[in-house]
C-alpha cells in the first residue's frame, strides 16, 4: 500500500475529486452497460414466452372451431339420417 492510512487513500494526495470522479463514472458506465444487457435478456425471454403462449392459444382456438364445425356437420348429418325414414 502506497498510502499510510485509509484517509490518505481517499484523499489521493489532494486529487481526490478528479481521481474518484473518473473512476466512479467509469465503473458506473460499465455497470449500467452490464445491467442493460441483463435487463434486455429478461425482456427478450419474456417476449419469447408471450409469443409461445399466444401460439398455444391460437392453436387451441383453431382446434376448438374445427371441433365445433365437425360437431355441427355431424349434427346436420344426424338430422338428415333421422329425416330419412
Amino acid at each position: 500500500m502506497q498510502f499510510d492510512n485509509l484517509t490518505a487513500f481517499f484523499h489521493m494526495g489532494g486529487y481526490a475529486f478528479y481521481v474518484w470522479l473518473s473512476f466512479g463514472v467509469s465503473v458506473l458506465a460499465l455497470v449500467l452497460l452490464a445491467v442493460d444487457a441483463m435487463r434486455q435478456q429478461k425482456v427478450l425471454f419474456n417476449a419469447v414466452e408471450k409469443e409461445q403462449a399466444r401460439k398455444v392459444r391460437i392453436k387451441a382456438a383453431q382446434t376448438e372451431t374445427k371441433q365445433n364445425r365437425l360437431d355441427k356437420q355431424n349434427m346436420s348429418q344426424n338430422e338428415e339420417v333421422t329425416h330419412e325414414p
Binding site: A37, Q41, L44, F45, E51, Q52
Partner: peptide, 29 residues
C-alpha cells in the same frame, strides 16, 4: 463479458420465432 451477453440478446431478438429459441427459453424457465 458484456459483449457475450449482448450478442446472445441480439441473436435472440432476431430469431425470436425460431423453434430452437422457443425450446431454449422453455428449458431455461
Amino acid at each position: 463479458a458484456i459483449f457475450i451477453r449482448r450478442l446472445q440478446n441480439e441473436i435472440l431478438r432476431r430469431e425470436l420465432n425460431r423453434p430452437w429459441v422457443q425450446t431454449l427459453v422453455s428449458t431455461a424457465r
